[in-house]
């Protein structure tokens, strides 16, 4: 169960370094076990609080940060934003319990580029980490639907920069939401199958909010910073 079934060749010649942030000990242990057992992935540290996570990131500069959202001393979104801001080269992956659209998209907007379910099978998790490094972001039908809806009803437009999606990107989201495979979507839109993931990555980038002013705005919105005192 804890072995990595897929001995894939390393991407480039270097190992992926990973920092894992998760406050529930059994889940953390399970995930850590899975990651450690896999070739090509080096788990550098695990953390159970925001504080510890910051320290670990500063110390290890991981290629991939895997983080839960609900942490005892704060919200994972803040960590994601900081890491995105300070170490832009790091890829960030969110661990979600049920993959609910709201927290996933919030994390994406903070700068995450992938998510995995907490009960994922080892195969899926490792594949997700590799996929992320290779520039593939996972997207489910429900997330695609959620993004379309939010972009259409203007929920994203109250803050700048507004993530305006191109018609093609919207078409791809619709295809995913309606249950078509990447092949089907590529055929219908006259694209090659390989370009579909890059479109999805692009959509992620558009949703991402990583300007400093935006972060301050968000912080004020969350009452982390108080003005006028």
């Amino acid at each position: 169960m804890s072995s990595c079934p897929d001995d894939r060749p390393l991407a480039g010649s270097h190992q992926l370094t990973v920092v894992l942030v998760e406050d529930d000990p059994p889940t953390r242990d399970h995930l850590a076990e899975t990651l450690t057992a896999c070739n090509g992935i080096a788990l550098l540290a695990t953390a159970d609080t925001l504080e510890a996570a910051r320290a670990a990131c500063e110390r290890f500069l991981p290629t991939v940060l895997i983080t839960d959202l609900q942490l005892p001393d704060g919200h994972g979104t803040d960590l994601i934003r900081e890491v995105r801001d300070r170490y832009p080269a790091s890829e960030i992956m969110v661990i979600s319990v049920l993959g609910d659209e709201d927290s996933v998209v919030t994390a994406i907007r903070a700068g995450a580029s992938g998510y995995i379910l907490k009960d994922s099978e080892p195969v899926d998790m490792v594949e997700a980490v590799h996929g992320l490094i290779e520039g593939r972001s996972p997207i489910s039908a429900s997330i695609a639907r959620y993004i379309i809806r939010r972009v259409q009803d203007g929920s994203f437009k109250d803050r700048k920069p507004a993530p305006l999606l191109t018609p093609r990107e919207t078409d791809i989201l619709w295809g995913i939401a309606k249950g078509f495979t990447y092949n089907d979507i590529a055929d219908r839109l006259g694209l090659s199958r390989q370009t579909v993931p890059s479109y999805i990555k692009n959509i992620y980038r558009k949703l991402e909010v990583n300007s400093r002013s935006e972060a301050v705005y968000e912080a004020i919105g969350r009452k982390l910073i108080q003005l006028g005192e």
């Binding site: 994922s120 039908a141 429900s142 639907r145 309606k178 249950g179 495979t181 089907d184």
Partner: peptide, 27 residues
């Protein structure tokens, strides 16, 4: 209905992969 069934696909695909079974989804 297509969107509804797409949800099912997201749901069944990881389960099949765990079992080492490929899913041929034709929508």
């Amino acid at each position: 209905p297509g969107m509804m069934l797409a949800n099912f696909r997201d749901h069944i695909q990881p389960q099949l992969r765990t079992l080492g079974i490929a899913l041929d989804w034709q929508m």
